[in-house]
Design a binder for these strands. Structure first.
Lengths: 117, 117
DNA sequence: CAGAATCCGGTCAGATACTG
DNA sequence: CAGTATCTGACCGGATTCTG
């Protein structure tokens, strides 16, 4: 096997892992939601909608379900009147910190570049 | 202004930067493409298609154009017969390293979690 | 408050075929 | 080799309305 083939194979394997991650975080809102929940540790539905901005209840609801399915957050119904619901980040969810932080950093830098033009 | 409001505002601002980044990297293929070009510094169209795997020429072409527009990569036509085209990562494109690496790391960890079940 | 239900347009992305 | 052209189904995600 040639050297080039080996490094190509390595790269392809890495790309598979990246694609796995991208699938979990797919869509417009998951990363912002996780980011907000890492920031606040826990929040209610309406809070999240305010923090994130621009997301409809339909979308927020859908994305929260997927995140719960993937064990990144938990959902807890509190018996008040009217009911409130508390979303919390899991320890597994916290493992996304690096990803989100690097995205934030890059995005912030990118903003400067854009504005600079 | 209450304390909570301040931290909410902070979080919302960060989310904006994250959303900027997500927009640039939107779609299924841009991150893998950038990753491959960081790994190899430069590659040809067909190479990229092989490395990434599963992407159609239509998609690859489209994504490469967007990446070039955003100054993350360059395109150079080489006058051979038949023509070859060399795509290279720019120094700005290299600034995505951290993002991609953290995605790779998380994805690799996530794989273990999934397989472990 | 925290959603569910319904409707709907847009675009994403795959399959396939073709070109210089 | 490095794309372009065309077609098409899927689904993403917004708007709106309604409910316990």
């Amino acid at each position: 096997m040639k050297d080039k083939d080996k490094t190509m194979e390595d790269c392809s394997k890495k790309i598979l892992a990246v694609r796995d991650a991208l699938e979990i975080f797919s869509g417009k809102w998951k990363i912002p939601i996780i980011g907000a929940l890492i920031h606040f540790e826990e929040a209610r539905f309406k809070d999240l909608q305010n923090i994130i901005g621009g997301i409809t209840s339909r979308m927020l609801s859908k994305e929260l379900k997927e995140l719960e399915t993937n064990l990144l957050i938990t959902r807890e119904v509190i018996d008040t009147r009217p009911v409130t619901v508390k979303y919390k980040i899991t320890s597994y969810g916290k493992s996304c910190q690096d990803v989100i932080f690097s995205l934030y950093q890059w995005g912030a830098e990118h903003r400067k570049v854009i504005i600079g033009k």
